[in-house]
């Protein structure tokens, strides 16, 4: 049998396995679909909690500058702790609940996002900040109404990096019996020397990461329409759109490259 034919055959096998194991109506906890849903639940909850912590902490760090260095060092130390260790350390307190996965992952999101929030706020041009002061914005109102919206593109760029990293890291939580699609890879695939579940798990994780990133790009377009540098009257609509997409993607791609690879 020729090589392409063998590859096709193998792919067919993986597909058949995925189709056969997608969902068991009689056993709602079994199959691929519940794992995918679990993966989404764990990663999205972690990202959301990380974001909810990063924004106020970042605002606080900008408002009270001495706070930033110790806080950044603190969360960086947490980031240095291997996630597996954190999962196991949390087990006695949170048991096999979602929190065992969510707490460490939310902290990792926070570590990636906090510098982005702070940098984003620092990146607000000085003349814009001074104009806001001179117009009669008080400190809090200025932060909420001017500086945070202007920092939003940088914050969302950080969120894109953090979300991809978190979605990938959820898999590791399969070691403590959580981990969504990670369980396909670890329990069904690795332990049983069976590659179909590994492939399905990896492909779905990657697809989920891509879909999430696309959602965030969409959110960025809706939330920061002003950040699109497509001037009217230049070039066709299609070319402008292409340019805008490229511009929107470029920073995230660049920061993905420098993001901590494969935290686990």
């Amino acid at each position: 049998m020729s090589a392409p034919a063998a590859a096709l055959d193998w792919a067919q096998g993986v597909w058949d396995w995925a189709a056969a194991n997608w969902y068991y109506p009689d056993e709602p906890g079994r199959g691929i679909r519940p794992r995918l849903i679990e993966h989404i639940r764990l990663s999205y909850a972690s990202i959301a909690i990380g974001l909810l912590l990063a924004v106020p902490l970042g605002l606080a760090c900008v408002r009270w500058k001495p706070l930033y260095p110790p806080l950044l060092t603190g969360v960086n130390v947490l980031y240095a702790v291997p996630s597996i260790a954190l999962f196991f350390l949390l087990l006695p307190y949170t048991g096999f609940s979602d929190w065992t996965a969510i707490v460490p992952l939310a902290v990792y999101t926070l570590v990636i996002l906090l510098p982005n929030v702070v940098d984003g706020l620092h990146q607000v041009p000085d003349h814009v900040r001074q104009a806001a002061v001179a117009m009669g914005f008080g400190p809090l109102r200025r932060l909420v109404r001017v500086e945070t919206p202007v920092a939003l593109p940088v914050i969302i760029a950080g969120l894109r990096v953090a979300s991809v990293a978190t979605i990938s890291m959820v898999s590791v939580a399969s070691l403590v019996g959580l981990g969504g699609l990670g369980r396909l890879i670890l329990s069904d695939g690795f332990r049983r020397q069976f590659d179909a579940p590994i492939v399905v798990g990896v492909v779905l994780v990657v697809l989920l990461a891509f879909a999430t990133d696309a959602l965030l790009v969409l959110a960025q377009r809706l939330l920061t329409p002003w950040a699109r540098r497509d001037r009217p009257r230049t070039g066709s609509v299609r070319r402008r759109r292409a340019a805008a997409t490229a511009a929107a993607d470029a920073p995230a791609l660049a920061s993905t490259a420098v993001a901590p690879p494969g935290k686990g």
Partner: peptide, 23 residues
């Protein structure tokens, strides 16, 4: 109060200082 005082005094800054996120 500084903020109230400033709302009663117009201010034009070099480079305009326009808010990029507002029309």
């Amino acid at each position: 109060d500084p903020a109230l005082l400033r709302r009663g005094i117009g201010y034009v800054i070099q480079q305009a200082g326009l808010f990029p996120h507002r029309t």
